[in-house]
Amino acid sequence: MDITLSEDIDAEYLEDVADILTNKEFLALNSYRHHVATTRLMHSINVSYISWLTAKKLGCDAQAAARAGLLHDFFLYDPREGRPSRELQAFCHPKVAARTSRETFEISEKERDAILSHMFPLGPLPKSREAWIISGADKICACAEVFHITIALARDGRVAVSPA
């Protein structure tokens, strides 16, 4: 699976997340439907980019926000077919995503905490400004996706995923 990104996407953002966006295991998220109208990969890219832009504007750690935004839903199962624990998906998937992220990439403690708390108020209280940003961006993207509104990098073919 390969990903093609529009040339108008900020090079600094792409540099911050290049190792993730070129990882075949991460790109497998494109195989999972998410929030009715998108894939888990496109949702994660949108959360990441919105988080990165917001963090830059607020003087936060934009790289951590971008990386944790990409990885916040990095779990490789379809919750409609079962989960790795008896917990509800809202509580289970942040833990699985944090574990999968740590096993696959070098992530900071700030990034891990942001992944774990992105479901607030259903999960732990976010500990950093970046974690709050990701939690908010996730909710904005989820609402847009449920109502079939294309936002951020989902617009105008700025991201295309194709089989390798």
Score class of each variant (00 low, 15 high):
M1K: 09
D2Y: 05
I3K: 02
T4P: 00
L5G: 00
S6A: 14
E7T: 13
D8F: 05
D8Y: 05
D8E: 14
D8I: 12
A11E: 14
E12A: 13
E12D: 13
Y13D: 10
L14R: 13
A18T: 11
T22Q: 11
T22G: 13
K24C: 00
K24F: 00
E25S: 09
E25G: 02
F26P: 06
N30Q: 14
S31R: 10
Y32M: 08
R33D: 12
R33N: 14
H34L: 08
V36A: 11
A37R: 11
T39L: 03
T39R: 05
T39S: 13
R40I: 00
L41M: 05
S44R: 06
S44M: 05
V47H: 05
S48W: 03
S48N: 05
Y49H: 15
I50L: 14
I50W: 03
S51A: 15
S51Q: 04
L53T: 13
L53Q: 14
T54Y: 08
T54A: 06
A55C: 13
A55F: 11
K56T: 07
K56H: 06
K56Q: 13
K57P: 00
K57Y: 00
L58G: 00
G59W: 07
G59Y: 09
C60T: 01
A62T: 05
A66I: 06
R67N: 11
R67Q: 13
A68E: 02
G69N: 02
G69P: 01
L71S: 01
H72F: 11
D73C: 07
D73K: 07
F74T: 07
F75A: 08
L76I: 13
Y77C: 11
D78Q: 04
P79S: 06
P79T: 04
R80P: 00
R80C: 07
E81G: 07
G82L: 04
R83H: 13
P84N: 01
S85K: 08
E87F: 10
A90F: 12
A90L: 12
F91Q: 13
C92V: 09
C92E: 15
P94R: 02
K95M: 12
A98L: 08
T100W: 07
S101I: 04
S101M: 05
S101A: 15
E103W: 07
E103F: 09
T104L: 01
E106I: 03
E106D: 07
I107H: 02
I107M: 02
S108R: 08
E111L: 02
R112K: 14
D113A: 11
A114Q: 03
S117H: 02
H118K: 02
P121H: 03
P124R: 07
P124I: 01
P126Q: 01
P126Y: 00
P126W: 05
K127N: 10
S128C: 07
S128I: 02
E130G: 03
I133A: 06
I133T: 12
I134P: 06
S135A: 15
G136H: 15
G136W: 14
I140D: 09
C141G: 00
C143H: 13
A144D: 10
E145D: 15
V146P: 01
F147S: 09
H148W: 10
I149W: 15
I149A: 12
I151D: 00
A152T: 05
L153P: 12
A154R: 14
G157R: 09
R158G: 05
A160D: 10
A160C: 14
S162N: 08
P163Y: 10
